[in-house]
Design a protein around this nucleic acid. Sequence first.
RNA 1: GGCCCGUUGGUGAAGUGGCUUAACACGACGCCCUUUCACGGCGCUAUUCAUGGGUUCGAAUCCCGUACGGGUCACCA
Length: 544
Amino acid sequence: MTREEYANMLLPNCKHDRKYYEEKYPRRNLKEGAMVTRIGPSPTGFVHIGTLFQSVIATKLASQSNGVSYVRIEDTDQKREIENGKEAILKAVSDYDMPFTEGPILGGEYAPYVQSERSDIYQAFAKDLIIRDLAYPSFITEEELAKLTEEQAKLKQRIGYFGKWAAKERAYTMEEVAEKVKNGEPYTIRLKSQGDFENKVFIEDCIKGRVEFPENDMDSVILKSNGIPPYHFAHPVDDYLMGTTVVIRGEEWLSSVPLHLEIFKALGIEPIQYAHTSSIQKEEDGKRRKISKRKDPEANVEYYTRMGIPKEAVKLYLLTLANSNFEEWYLANPGVSTDEFKMTFEKMGGSGALFDTEKLNNIAKTFLSTVSAKELYERIYAWAKIYDEDFAKVIKANKEKTIATLNIERETEKPRKDFAMYSEIKDLIWYMFDELYQPTSYEWGKITEKEEIKNILNTYIEKYYDENDNQEDWFNKVKLLCDDLGYASNMKEYKKNPEAFKGNVADVSTVIRVAVTSKSRTPNLYDILQILGKEEIKKRIEHI
RNA sequence: GGCCCGUUGGUGAAGUGGCUUAACACGACGCCCUUUCACGGCGCUAUUCAUGGGUUCGAAUCCCGUACGGGUCACCA
């Protein structure tokens, strides 16, 4: 039996050889400096904020260098796969306007972009390794492996399948293997490591700098018994074939670099550049940890969609986490597209950043304050249609009124920054709508006596309120009302001699404000009254 | 436990041997502006860069040790 026949026996379903695929997927023709980046999310049914973080970096780096960025679905673990998991990722990426240039939906010359559809490719490369005696079949069972680990732990030795522990299986002759295969024993394909733990290897990581490790000496599995590779083998093969120039991935992968380096070497491929990003962290009980999909709702991209945090704000925040100088640049260049910002690896932090909800909120508020009332309306409506149907109905029936309300103190040089997310807007403007106006309590200020409140309101509406007044006239009338009833219309005079008055114009304004909205804190009162209209105001006052 | 990464304020961070009495932004607090709130303005928030030692005329910045935090050691990614 030749080694080729041997390899064919081990991988009987493998249709092509390595050369076939290398010819099918020629090297990319790139301009000098063009970067090819990717994200490799797994369809676990949960789209992690980290995936979005990598996406921001990958797409930005590619676009600013006139390169390519693509999505590759890494679904080699069918146990974890969840129905529609792939779709959820693709949807999130498109919802957030990540400008990838190739992928499962976009297509591209290096398709398929889904690993489960590439198993023949991996087998072809594994076969090459078997032929060159750099990989071998392994029949060890999970139980035996667990026992081995236990034994190693007891002996306080390094844990893993390597060196003398793997010697027996490495030494099988082709005939012995053929016998086992004939008996139907399941097997994996393992790398026949040539590494020595005493030797050093290193990478020049784009973010972490030079990192040195002991060489890999583990005989890692490169093809599982179902013929599909684990990540460690799929990564070198895919990124080689698909022409990736920089692998951007989380720092949890840093430790497996020696293995990947050895696989590149065994395959006879130049290793590619790595950029290991630090993971987004979260603090709990004074302890930091990697943000967890179990415990932290904000780890899930769906959370932002549900809360109605504008996608632009999420991206902006991710950008500030990615590059420490982004925020300053953004502040210094108002109105300039973020496409103009030049992202660099130098400005990526080596340590993990704590996720800061306050900061995200601030970014969201600032962003939404720059959006027109009409556009804001459309955004809220689109959100509410999915997450708050009742509210959607109300604002649809009162479209102009809603826009007018959202526009209060908006078209000014320094617009209000009330809204950070669509989900909290209802709580902020509900009192403007008849349909929703059912106050449970009134937040009266200094003046609390019912009789006096009624007196102020009735005098005001009968003697002073005129819908046609502009803001200045309107406020002058409120002042007249004050003079009329013994309140100070001038704050300075009031401060000089508070005893001379029953109260001041602020107290009176508060009465009107609360009577009409039930709330003590609202945007500009004049605008609110204008939008509500005299009839509605009267109705609300009578209700007191 | 082995291997690897990290450590500047409440948070993100600037800082790459003297220009740092440690920038900028978020948050907190205070004052001012003001019909409330918000916006805005001003101020305050690290005598010190985890810690011990070393190199140097000089260190947050370079070197070594220690501590602490994180990651990883699967037929998961």
